[in-house]
Design a protein around this nucleic acid. Structure first.
Lengths: 206, 206, 206, 206
DNA sequence: CATGAATGAGTTTTCATTCAT
DNA sequence: AATGAATGAAAACTCATTCAT
């Protein structure tokens, strides 16, 4: 085996552990997932786990990273912040993002639920990690708002920080709402329409 | 100490334990709350806990009862199901109920979060307890819908069972959405407007 | 209430506790009998128990005394050690004692079983108490043997100590055997016949 | 260490635990033997115990198996059921078996005591296990009786089931009797003589 | 005396983590 | 690297005993 193959094998095994941990943590919760559960899912021994992670807590970071990546992938190919030139373009972008988030909730409810509800109760370090990720979302959101102000289709007196946070809150609120509901068919349409309408009147120029 | 005082003291201590358990469970989750946590919050020994509850699981029922009571209190003084005589009355009722639920979420987010997300994962008996409470909500909701059909301002071809459940789902979906949001002021207005609009067109007569 | 009545009441309650403890200990064993079991059988509180006994262990002495008393009563009215004047008288006495012991086992198997098998495992002090009681039995047995040697119907070269202990051992062995057996009818007859036969040939003069 | 050595070491340690548990349970009783007692006898931590047994109850099965094995070994090399051709042969067999059982009681009184008196009080599953073992004894006993009927030295009108159970009861009764006695040498002679005599007259042909 | 709430030592069991092989 | 036996901290729960009322 070459050195490269050895490294690959190492990373593959680490990835296996993260995937197994992810499946278990998302389905049973972090507290209910033991190291024994994770390793026995792969037929490995306890000791092996500690060759890849410092602690049980440590694998959680990797699971969160793995989940965040899936979230990010979900939003990759997202519209370019600078692409909208009219208010309708902008609202259409908003509508698309909202729908994509709803699809995410529909596809991976446990991931979203874990992030929104369980993660915060684990420890402070994890809360920081989530807030940092949230700030990243706010920033990227801000690009859309600033682009709108610049192009003149959003009100020039908007505080881009406040406006982008409000926008994000509304998006998340709508998304999390979908977690609880059993998915009345109209749900995403209603929510998106209300959101778009509110933004059109609250943020649109004139 | 009179017999009555003794009973009062007993109940007061039990209540103390329930309150301490409630605070801890709502903030850290049931799984993360040990008997030691609960009693040490009151400076008692763990043996004392077992003079008041049969088990750690047992105090959870008391915490749920305590929370349900607060929920029920919140909705007491609710509109009389028979009071609405026009569609606008009905929608105004709906709006008020929705706002009251949002206030609840704003005041006691952890209670709602616990009921919606954690309770179900604890055991089957608790799930039954929640479903029973839910059926109580559906029933009371149904009175509103049947009143509307009777008075002629809701569509006469509505199945009151289906319609009241849909209504409840929308209310809850909207409410749970508020869980995630940090409560931008506009939130409840948006959600209520969307809800009212959907109901007006979906359920209103004509 | 006179002072005498007060004392009587106290003793009556103590006796109640001993009887309740005896019933429980003989049926469930000492280890499985809690103070709560004893007091709740009489509808009293924990504290009351400690007004009458120093500890849970303490009541066991009283239970043993109560049981020993019943054993002694069973053998009271026993033959007078000096009454036998011939070997046949003596063997008839032996047969009667053996039968009385078998009746005891039949009537109160748990008492005998407890004394023989459980008591020794509780603590050393209890073992001492049992050995002392045993020595009492040996001594009274010895009177029978010494009477026999004196009257000339037992071998004059018998060591009365050894002979009385052997006699007692055979009696007990036969008795304890009855504990295990489901009581084939012939049992006591067989055992008594064998015992009498052995003693006649082993100890009888000539 | 080879794989075989590892397995051996595992089994050796498990055996150590069973032996330690056996010593303790037979001397102090199951109820009085804690996991801490067992492991501290070997200088291990209590966690280790649970690497070898699922629970405290679980080790009891192993202790019973270990004891049963010693019992079985004691009776292995027993006379062949078909070897007796005369009543005297048969009675000599009976005498030998009885003596072997008495030796067992003399060597391992606590084992027999535990099986006879404590085991039944632990749980129903254990009672079943003992009854099954007992049925095994009855069956093997029956072979002796059937052989006797066939060869004509036992009464032809005997019900082999009833007769073998009666035989076993007498054997056990005699054996258990030895539990109480401190083993006067004459004991087994007396008991065996009585047993043989009873069987000769009760079961012998003519 | 009687009461029973409070106590805390002790018991079983779980599980993250270490370390010798 | 992989293994898995050993460890021990921590958790739920029991129960004998104390003590203020």
């Amino acid at each position: 085996m070459t050195a490269q193959e050895a490294v690959d094998r190492l990373e593959a095994r680490r990835a296996d552990l993260v995937h197994a941990a992810s499946d278990l943590i998302l389905s049973k919760g972090y507290r209910n997932t033991s190291v024994a559960d994770i390793v026995s899912a792969l037929g490995l021994s306890h000791g092996t786990f500690y060759n890849y992670f410092d602690s049980r807590r440590d694998v959680l970071d990797a699971v969160i990273d793995y989940g965040s990546q899936r979230l990010a992938d979900r939003l990759v190919g997202s519209d370019d912040p600078g692409s909208a030139t009219t208010l309708d373009d902008f609202l259409a972008q908003l509508d698309r993002i909202n729908r994509r988030l709803h699809e995410l909730v529909a596809d991976e409810p446990r991931l979203v639920q874990f992030i929104v509800f369980e993660a915060a109760s684990i420890d402070q370090e994890l809360v920081q990690r989530m807030l940092t990720a949230y700030q990243g979302f706010v920033s990227s959101n801000r690009s859309y708002v600033e682009n709108g102000i610049e192009k003149g289709f959003l009100r020039s007196d908007l505080d881009s920080e406040v406006a982008s946070e409000a926008l994000l809150t509304m998006l998340l609120s709508s998304t999390v709402g979908a977690l609880g509901g059993q998915g009345v068919a109209a749900d995403v349409t209603v929510s998106s329409a209300a959101l778009v309408d509110f933004v059109r009147h609250g943020m649109g120029a004139q």
